[in-house]
């Protein structure tokens, strides 16, 4: 099949917005779900979270960070180009109810993908606070969109160029200062952020839902590569998730499994001279 690229642009350094025409997906996708695409006929199948969708126009938006071979091919796409595979929506949607007060945490591509979740939570009557996390101010996007939508938006940047200076570990202090008493956390983004946020909310006992991103192939429960351990049980992220309770995930195992193809995946980068030192937290 062929799916038309409507838009592909770098929204902040190394993070690209991708809008694809895929009517069937656009009509059925719900917040928290993902799609799988292939950049070309020899490409691998890579999963991306859905960040927005328009059933009328039949378009689906995702953000991707350029980390390896497949995402660098995606980064070359221009409006009007086509890609051969775009399948979805996959995974279970994020649980949306009126929980009371919800804090949505987004980092990296998760700044985009937490958007439909925040919107749905708002529609369900929640008080919604959004925390955007990045290394620096220039990596934050869509802040205005959130400001129009939710009750409050705040940011943490590691270099202090926007919002609170530091790490996600500041979260409990910030909430205390703002007198926010969440009933639930929902986190989207790289493994590092999911893991660390779960760690810092653990003491509070407030349920923390993380949108997991293991290696995948089919996304339909057929291959089992996406398995992880949650509360001592093996789960397939593509059909049982990707949302899980972050306090119950076996994080060591999860991080380890993501590295299965590290050597193979980074070989072409090393060869091309772009990836000699490779510290992206999406991978580690």
């Amino acid at each position: 099949m062929e799916y038309k690229i409507i838009e592909r642009r770098m929204i902040v350094p190394n993070i690209h917005e991708l809008v694809v025409e895929a009517e069937d997906v656009a009509k059925s996708v719900q917040p928290g779900q993902f799609i799988i695409l292939r950049p070309d006929d020899k490409g691998e199948r890579i999963p991306l979270s859905v960040s927005d969708y328009n059933p009328e126009l039949g378009t689906v938006t995702a953000f991707f960070i350029e980390v390896g071979e497949s995402t660098s091919l995606l980064a070359l796409l221009k409006p009007g180009d086509t890609i051969p595979t775009f399948v979805g929506p996959l995974g279970l949607p994020t649980d949306i109810e009126n929980f009371g007060t919800v804090v949505c945490v987004g980092g990296c591509f998760g700044i985009g993908s937490i958007y439909p979740i925040a919107r749905a939570l708002k529609e369900a009557g929640n008080t919604v606070h959004v925390l955007l996390e990045a290394r620096s101010q220039y990596l934050i996007y869509w802040k205005e969109r959130y400001e129009e939508l939710v009750d409050s938006v705040f940011t943490i940047t590691r270099d202090g160029t926007m919002g609170y200076p530091g790490h996600i570990s500041l979260l409990p202090d910030i909430l205390k200062e703002k007198n926010i008493k969440p009933d639930r956390f929902i986190v989207n983004g790289c493994t590092f952020l999911l893991n660390r946020t779960s760690d810092v909310t653990r003491a509070s006992g407030v349920k923390t839902i993380v949108n997991m991103n293991p290696i995948m192939i089919d996304g339909t429960g057929m291959c089992g590569v996406c398995r992880l351990t949650v509360d001592g049980e093996t789960k397939f992220a593509c059909v049982d998730g990707p949302d899980f309770d972050g306090h119950l995930v076996d994080w060591d195992e999860f991080r380890q499994r993501r590295l299965t193809y590290y050597d193979e995946e980074t070989a072409p980068l090393r060869k091309s001279g772009t990836g000699t030192e490779y510290h992206c937290k999406l991978i580690r």
């Binding site: 020899k42 691998e44 199948r45 192939i217 291959c223 590569v225 380890q256």
Partner: peptide, 27 residues
């Protein structure tokens, strides 16, 4: 790491043509 289901192992090789990696992109 290093434990696979047959489906994963075979899908990587057959459907995704992993045996032609890196010409085909699935490792």
């Amino acid at each position: 790491n290093g434990v696979f289901s047959a489906n994963e192992y075979l899908t990587r090789v057959n459907l995704m043509k992993g045996y032609l990696f890196p010409d085909y992109n699935t490792p």
